[in-house]
Structure formats: C-alpha cells, structure tokens
C-alpha cells in the first residue's frame, strides 16, 4: 500500500465529520422537540409556531 500524503482538505475532512454530525444532531433535536413532540405542555406552548411553520400539529 502506498502512503498517500495527507492534503489540507483531507486533514480537515477528518476533523469536520464528527463535530458536524454532533451539531446536526443537536439541531435536529431542537426542531424535533419544538416542532413534533406531542407532549401536551410542549404542544400547547409551541402551538402557534407549529402551525405557522407548517409542522403537523394536532
């Protein structure tokens, strides 16, 4: 196997993947919680936002 010199893009690609996945998951969690979870208190508090943002509400 020939050793491939690590490029700048290659080096940053490795250090981007996990942080990006983590941030993406947190972002999704925020949207899921405010937009889709049906727990009553959450639903009532976010009611108008869910309608106005086009999430399925009730």
């Amino acid at each position: 196997m020939t050793a491939k010199p690590m490029t700048a893009a290659g080096a940053s690609r490795a250090s981007v993947l996990f942080p990006a996945i983590a941030a993406f998951a947190i972002g999704f969690g925020l949207i899921f919680m405010s937009g889709l979870v049906q727990a009553e208190t959450l639903h009532d508090a976010a009611h108008d936002v869910r309608h106005a943002t086009g999430f399925p509400c009730h």
Binding site: P19, A23, I26, F28, I31, S34, T53
Partner: peptide, 18 residues
C-alpha cells in the same frame, strides 16, 4: 419557540456547510 426552531435549522445548515 420560533428562535429554537430556527436555531435548530441554523445548526443543521452550518454543519452541512462545514
């Protein structure tokens, strides 16, 4: 809640930009 939803969108968007 709108700020929370858009903070979520923002995180996902910037993660993909990165």
């Amino acid at each position: 809640f709108t700020m929370m939803v858009y903070a979520g969108y923002g995180l996902m968007l910037v993660a993909l930009m990165a």
